[in-house]
């Protein structure tokens, strides 16, 4: 187990170096010059050239990459070309909003999706099953911005029960914080709920046809216990895998949702940075996100051992 974790962390570092190399190259190959953006519309070619030299953009690419990597290894993600503020500071300022949104989405979506999936599998073929799966298909098909604006129109503008947009830090009161998160979390959680519910239904259906479920029923156990104790845990590995993959989707979804609801989170930070070709910010955010993702993957794999006693690393 320890050996496995160490091997995995070793490969994680390798993956992250590769990811940062790809991002680094992609940004440099894409058209657009940060110096030109920074210098403004009226700058002369000479001014832009000076700026490029000051920013270190004249160095050969390998030198730029290695010096950035060296700084990263020391915990320094660099500073924004635009505001000169450190990338770590920019990210930590925005982290609360993004984490709040992600966690709110997960705490609602995961339990709801599992209950939906288990119910649909137990009642497979009935009206209940069809209604639940119709909802799941709808959740897949509707883009976040459509649902988002629709919810804003109905619940915020027409009914006036929830704020239209923006974010309120938790320090300014739990009520306001929660009220601001309801609509974005529903918007973001919809596709996520649909995905987990469908996988839960499919794996539960498979598990329910297993011999040991027949054994459990022949023992005279209550259906609730058969479903939640005997079947759900056996269906757990694929469900947890999808939840893990879903977190990656969440990272992408956060960007759109934050834009729709005008939430000052990491998603907005990276959208703004891309518009300005703010290389260090983009690189920093992607590196941290991929780090989180790889780490979550490791945690997902390790969680298998908690679910299934046959899995040992």
């Amino acid at each position: 187990m320890v050996a496995y974790v160490l091997r995995r962390i070793g490969s994680t570092i390798l993956v992250m170096v590769l990811v940062s190399l790809l991002v680094f190259l992609l940004l440099r190959l894409a058209p657009g010059d940060p110096a030109a953006v920074l210098a403004g519309d009226n700058a002369s070619a000479e001014q832009i050239a000076t700026l490029r030299r000051l920013l270190g953009l004249d160095d050969p690419l390998p030198v730029q990459f290695l010096s950035w990597l060296w700084a990263v290894a020391q915990g320094n993600l660099g500073a924004s070309l635009y505001s000169a503020e450190p990338v770590t500071l920019l990210m930590s300022q925005r982290a609360e909003a993004t984490l709040s949104l992600a966690l709110a989405t997960l705490t609602v979506a995961v339990p709801l999706a599992i209950v939906m999936g288990v119910t649909a599998a137990h009642r497979a073929g009935t009206g209940t099953d069809r209604v639940l799966m119709l909802f799941a298909v709808a959740g897949f098909s509707l883009p976040a911005f459509v649902v988002g604006y629709l919810l804003v129109y109905l619940l915020a503008i027409q009914a006036g029960v929830l704020p239209v947009q923006g974010y309120q830090p938790i320090a300014e009161g739990i009520g306001g914080w929660a009220a601001h998160l309801v609509l974005p979390a529903i918007t973001l959680g919809l596709i996520y709920t649909a995905l987990i519910a469908r996988i839960t239904r499919a794996t539960m259906l498979e598990t329910l046809s297993e011999d040991f479920i027949r054994t459990a029923r022949a023992k005279g156990l209550p259906m609730r216990r058969v479903l939640l104790v005997h079947a759900l845990r056996n269906a757990g590995v694929p469900i947890v895998t999808v939840i893990g993959i879903g977190v990656a989707l969440l990272i992408g979804g956060v960007v759109v949702t934050e834009t729709v609801f005008n939430i000052p989170g990491v998603g907005r930070l990276v959208v703004d940075a891309i518009a300005r070709r703010d290389y260090p910010v983009i690189q920093g955010v992607i590196l941290v996100c991929s780090g989180i993702y790889v780490l979550l993957n490791l945690l997902t794999d390790l969680s298998y051992t908690l679910i299934d006693p046959r899995i040992r690393y």
Partner: peptide
Amino acid sequence: VRGSAISMIFQEPMTSLNPMM
């Protein structure tokens, strides 16, 4: 009645027990 007055054993011992418990 199941599992108390009438109980059952099955053909496949490899798959008839819950592997997680």
